[in-house]
Design a protein around this nucleic acid. Structure first.
Lengths: 337, 337
DNA sequence: CTGAAAGCGCTTACAG
DNA sequence: CTGAAAGCGCTTACAG
């Protein structure tokens, strides 16, 4: 019976080939512990000769840790989330980790079952964009969890300063001279939806009470293209008597839907109505006309989140990342032609 | 010393609590093997009482398998790929598996290092959209690998019938009466780019040699928005003398970029120029005007790929999924007003 | 600095 | 049908 099987080489095979103990091989694997150069060289050669690859499962069983971070998103096809996923993956790879991806489809139970699955797999940490407000309340986790964009349970949240971002838009539209404004809100059962709306509405009201009066219509949408189109249409059809000159939307997708809605009614943007979004997804600069919006710095959001997971020293706490107003072609002073 | 630690319960704890051997617990875990109902009930109760969760790493070490499939994409922010990722995730969850996501960023070395990382983690199989033509040639894998959309090495490929899809577009434009046509090709170092171009060009030439002559301009783009805009602009500016009445693009992103380019030149779509895409990403039905395109059935692509990974019985082999022409508002007969 | 050995938590022949 | 036991491939005190 040949001791050499056609299976992959193990640490034992390497130890034999190098004429050392498995402990020594393990130590050169770990890099930290000092091993005499001569032995180290022999071990390295044996590993190369045998095409040795460490067995991750065995290591995970011993150390109760694995180079893996979990990422849970409501919907990977949402361009903002896919942008975020990309950045999270980049940050994970930088740290020598892989990422496991799961979709909650906006459902809390699906979400928590995925979290449990990640925990079962001994992930190093979990990044989650919560499925809905109030999800994840009951959860206890042995590893760091950090929520991004939408808060999960009582875990720290890394998010854009939605309120301030929305204020930027309010200031901008008011300064342009708009006094008949509509706001298409995101879902009010999400914190993001509420913060953006509150930031916008409060600021507009404040401006209106100090200076010129402003009429403000608030409409409810989801975050997607279709509801943006539908709501904008109703808004613009209905406004024959008291026309709205500007629409601020809670997301770029809503705004892009609104662009469509306006177009279908034969209205020109920005001549007849200005439209402003939020997020600055890739598409925002490509639609016709290019969309004025608030840029979320996804790379920073991802980096902060991963720092929170990997920096054991740092106290885990929520953090806001500022949004930036990006002015493009979908906005102008009212009545401009 | 208390035998009860604050660590999670193991199979041994469950065995003790239920008064059976660990083998028996393992058997009820496996479900297959028959265990007497009375014992089974005791074990189940003990598991519930102790909030027992099986240790995946230990199981993986023993069985050399883990409920994990790998997914490698050139770029998750590409809407077609993110759609595909969503479908793959859904199919994986159906089969009780998690998915690991990695981005190759179009780089072959990054790609192969991710493949290796997946293999090291004992994934059940890998789905990969190749970074570039010819990538993955050298690779040997102990688990099934299947490529989707862009072939990886000599592994089976599940893809839309790009050639036939492109022919659909050629037939459609010709029948509408277009005789001055441009094609914006995808990268020719990708099979997809070549197949779509060849399908389109050959069919147009065939039609042109049998019936009315057709002038066909072929331009080179990548698959993204920006190159579509740039190329379309040059094409339409240059065509003052011999105007092009229709542009077929190798992807929706190209086509949407072309829409922008046309718009910036003051051209109306479809009145001045028809534009047709390929893929049917979500956005295609939301841009202004709605884009005529060829729909790729991502759900089917994902399902076939996963079937290939999980159906050990089935002979792994490539398969084409048909594309469907979706006619919307960006195309019409030439000279239509 | 290095080796011998225990042990992580499972699964699975092997008996009975 | 069930139990006792070996063993998957590592890491890490423990000696020396």
């Amino acid at each position: 019976m040949n001791s050499k099987k056609n299976n992959a080489a193990t640490i034992k095979d390497v130890a034999e080939a190098a004429g050392v103990s498995v402990g020594t091989v393990s130590r050169v694997l770990a890099k930290e512990s000092a091993v005499k150069p001569a032995l180290q060289a022999r071990v390295l050669k044996a590993m190369a000769d045998l095409d040795y690859r460490v067995n991750i499962a065995a290591r995970a069983l011993r150390t109760r840790q694995i180079d893996l971070v979990g990422l849970i998103l409501p919907d990977i096809t949402n361009p903002f989330f896919s942008q975020l996923a990309k950045c999270v993956e980049v940050e994970a790879v930088k740290r020598g980790h892989c990422v496991m991806l799961a979709s909650s489809h906006g459902d809390c139970e699906t979400e928590s079952s995925h979290i449990q699955a990640f925990l079962d797999r001994s992930v190093r940490g979990i990044v989650v964009v919560a499925a809905a407000d109030g999800s994840g309340q009951a959860l206890k986790s042995p590893v760091p969890i950090v929520s991004v964009d939408r808060r999960f349970g009582r875990y720290p949240l890394i998010a854009t300063d939605h309120e301030k971002g929305a204020e930027l838009v309010a200031d901008y539209l008011y300064e342009l001279g708009h006094r008949h404004i509509a706001y298409i809100a995101g879902p009010q059962d999400t914190e993001v939806g509420r913060l953006r709306r509150d930031g916008f509405v409060k600021r507009i009201r404040a401006l209106g009470s100090r200076g010129d009066r402003v009429t403000l219509k608030i409409r409810q949408g989801r975050f997607d293209y279709n509801s943006g189109e539908r709501v904008a249409r109703k808004l613009l059809e209905a406004s024959a008597s008291l026309p709205v000159t500007a629409i601020a939307a809670a997301s770029d997708q809503l705004a892009i839907g609104a662009l469509r809605g306006a177009r279908d009614l034969g209205l020109l943007v920005p001549e007849d109505v200005s439209i402003v979004g939020f997020d600055d997804i890739e598409l925002a600069s490509l639609v016709v006309p290019r969309l004025t919006t608030v840029r979320q710095q996804t790379d920073l959001l991802a980096k902060e989140a991963m720092d929170l997971i990997f920096d054991d020293a740092r106290k885990p706490r929520s953090q806001l990342v500022s949004g930036e107003l990006v002015i493009r072609d979908s906005s102008s002073s009212p009545g401009y032609s």
